[in-house]
Amino acid sequence: MTAAEPLRPDLARELIARAAQSAARRARRVRNQLDAVQLGQDRHADHANTKVLRRVLAEDDWPGYRLVGAEAARAAWSLALHADEDASFQRAATTLLERAVQDSDARVQHWAHLYDRTLVNCGHPQEFGTQQVVTASGVELCPVRAPDSLDQRRTSVGLSPIAAALEAVRRRLAQDHQADDFSTVVLAEVA
């Protein structure tokens, strides 16, 4: 990652703003603070974010560090991660993000999260254990391929052991006093 000015600061600002608005909406949704109209608006906003990111990927490839800087690259990852209603887009974004990682233009942890999210959304076991289901009874790991070697795969992409990651999610939920407010939500562990 470089500290140089990104090539597209205009795009960086847009990605950051969209991701921040998306995060605020998700927080309200998780706390059951949205009515039916707002839920529809939320889905529409997610669709619009996916459409914008699709355009960016078509024009500029993955918006990595060099193009938009670290904060906006993280924002792009967050938008792709939450494009759950468009599995083909998520698969394409995962491929482009993987290339950016190979070019040292993005974080491998972001790729691992998006790869897992794509697998889970397509009904397959995840590879790195980044996706959990949060219910009123607690945090459960979505199905994982070869659970016995999960920690080795997590280590290979710079993630903490699964027990520590799940405990961090549980602590965060307990601190927020929101465990009773969840129906069923798939979350991505913070990288």
Rank of each mutant, 00 (worst) to 15 (best):
M1S: 12
P9R: 01
D10L: 04
D10Y: 03
L11D: 05
R13W: 02
E14D: 06
E14T: 00
A17E: 14
R18F: 04
A19H: 07
A20L: 11
S22L: 14
A23G: 13
R26E: 15
R26D: 12
A27D: 14
R29S: 10
R29F: 15
N32Q: 15
N32K: 13
A36R: 12
G40T: 02
H44I: 00
D46A: 14
V52M: 14
R54K: 10
V56L: 07
V56F: 02
A58K: 15
D60A: 12
P63R: 00
A70V: 14
E71G: 00
A72G: 04
A75R: 04
S78N: 15
L81C: 06
L81I: 00
A83K: 01
D84L: 03
D86E: 08
S88M: 10
S88Y: 08
F89A: 08
Q90L: 09
R91D: 02
R91A: 14
T95N: 03
L96S: 11
L97C: 08
L97K: 01
E98N: 11
Q102R: 13
D103Y: 09
D103G: 07
S104Q: 02
S104Y: 10
A106T: 05
R107N: 07
R107Y: 03
V108P: 03
W111Q: 08
Y115T: 15
Y115N: 13
D116G: 13
T118P: 05
L119Y: 03
V120I: 15
N121L: 14
C122Y: 04
C122T: 04
G123V: 06
P125F: 02
Q126G: 02
F128Y: 15
G129Q: 02
G129T: 01
Q131G: 01
Q132T: 11
Q132M: 12
V133K: 12
V134S: 06
V134H: 00
T135A: 15
T135F: 09
G138V: 07
E140Y: 01
E140N: 07
C142G: 00
C142F: 09
P143V: 05
P143N: 01
V144A: 04
R145T: 06
D148L: 12
S149I: 10
Q152P: 01
V157C: 11
V157T: 09
V157Q: 00
V157R: 08
S160N: 14
S160P: 03
I162P: 02
E167T: 11
E167R: 10
A168D: 14
L173S: 02
H177N: 11
A179L: 15
D181K: 15
F182L: 09
T184I: 12
L187G: 03
E189C: 14
V190T: 12
